[in-house]
Amino acid sequence: MSQKVRAVIARRKNEPVTVETVVVPDPGPGEAVVKVQACGVCHTDLHYRQGGISDDFPFMLGHEAAGVVESVGEGVTEVEPGDFVVLNWRAVCGQCRACRRGRPWYCFATHNAAQRMTLEDGTELTAALGIGAFADKTLVHAGQCTKVDPAASAAVAGLLGCGVMAGLGAALNTGNVQRGDSVAVIGCGGVGGAAVMGANLAGASRVIAVDIDDRKLATARKLGATHTVDSRESDPVEAVRELTGGFGADVVIDAVGVPETYRQAFYARDLAGTVVLVGVPTPEMRLELPLLDVFGRGGALKSSWYGDCLPSRDFPMLIDLYLQGRLDLDAFVSETIELDGVEESFDRMQAGDVLRSVVVL
């Protein structure tokens, strides 16, 4: 039997979000209903509200979530009612060419629930990243549920569902930071801060945080940065080179995603170094680089989509590290709010006042 729950809805482009009643159907084959316990407020949710991802309004927002499986549909074996799970938007198919090559973190056909949640009048909703977790309960594909140790706080565990995983994975997976490497991170908000933490966790000898906000640079220090660069006051390329013996960093992570910061990342890396783009550009952005420099500097230019994570592999491991006291995920939770506080949290996020606001239900 379907259920009626509260959820945060973006009805039209750039209009404030509202808390409305949503109808959640019983799970069908391969689906699960999850009782949401906490959900982080991510910049992607704001992009949905601004119409920057698609115009398939109305949207049911929220995707950085953790909760408990309430019910499952036919054929579901990976989770069962009562399991504590982190929701993910990379439910791998197991059948596409990436999965068949043994690279499921690149899956080209990830799963979402087949059924749609609706408003009370029957209007179908588009769930953000196939999740829609600013809600008491949500319907997802069972593969979007990753079981983790229930000893972890839901407010912390849910952050692995998007931004924190994107940053950690940019360093650990895409950048493949090795012990003793030098790493520079440009842009130290939630994703960049997590990249700093990931580089530190990997054993980087030097982690250089670059930003224009003193507050973010101070936070980056707490997350493991050994050096900081205020790019309002100095050229970040020259500063990174100076801090790395004149050579540039082994890995440079662009967590902003605009042409200017990408060029900085490109020239701030050592010869044969790696650039990782994890900040999300907008469709109109264009980049121009001398092709001879691309050729002559060698190395690798990579994009990191969701930190190249495999949720079934990475989420339980990272939660274990958190419970062991080796990964301070609590540092990302700036505040906890209620469902009706999401719109105001967008303002604080844009002002740089928080790393993450987390809705606790």
Rank of each mutant, 00 (worst) to 15 (best):
K4Q: 15
V5N: 04
R6H: 12
K13D: 06
N14T: 14
T18H: 12
E20H: 10
V24M: 02
P25H: 04
P27T: 09
P27H: 06
E31K: 09
K35R: 15
V36T: 01
V36H: 02
Q37M: 13
T44G: 01
L46A: 14
H47Q: 05
H47P: 01
Y48W: 09
R49V: 05
G51M: 11
S54P: 03
S54Q: 07
F57P: 00
F59D: 10
L61F: 10
G62H: 05
G67M: 03
E70Q: 09
T77H: 12
T77G: 05
E78K: 08
P81Q: 04
P81H: 12
P81Y: 09
G82C: 00
F84K: 13
V85P: 12
V85N: 09
V86H: 04
W89K: 11
A91C: 13
Q95D: 12
C96L: 12
R97A: 15
A98Q: 14
C99F: 15
C99Q: 09
R101E: 15
P104R: 12
W105M: 03
Y106H: 15
H111Y: 07
A114L: 06
Q115V: 05
R116A: 14
L119T: 00
G122Y: 11
T123P: 01
T123A: 07
L129G: 00
G132D: 02
G132A: 03
F134Y: 14
D136C: 05
D136V: 04
T138R: 02
G143C: 09
G143D: 04
Q144N: 15
A154N: 13
A155R: 13
A155D: 12
L160C: 07
V164H: 06
M165P: 00
A166K: 08
G169V: 05
A170R: 04
V183Q: 09
V185F: 13
G189F: 10
V191K: 10
G193F: 08
L201N: 05
S205D: 12
R206L: 01
I208Q: 05
R215V: 14
A218C: 03
A218H: 02
A218W: 06
A220W: 06
A220I: 13
L223I: 03
L223T: 11
V229D: 02
R232T: 15
P236C: 06
V237M: 04
V237Y: 01
E238A: 14
R241N: 13
L243W: 08
G245S: 08
G245D: 08
V251T: 07
G257N: 08
Q264W: 14
A265S: 03
Y267I: 07
Y267Q: 05
R269E: 10
A272Y: 14
T274Y: 02
P283K: 05
R286L: 12
L287P: 06
E288D: 10
L289D: 00
P290T: 05
G296W: 02
S303K: 11
W305K: 08
Y306A: 08
L310C: 00
S312A: 15
R313N: 09
R313D: 10
I319Y: 01
L321S: 00
L321Y: 10
Y322W: 11
Q324F: 01
R326S: 10
D328P: 15
D328N: 13
A331V: 03
V333M: 07
V333C: 11
D340L: 03
V342N: 07
E344A: 15
R348C: 05
R348P: 04
L355D: 13
R356Q: 10
V359C: 00
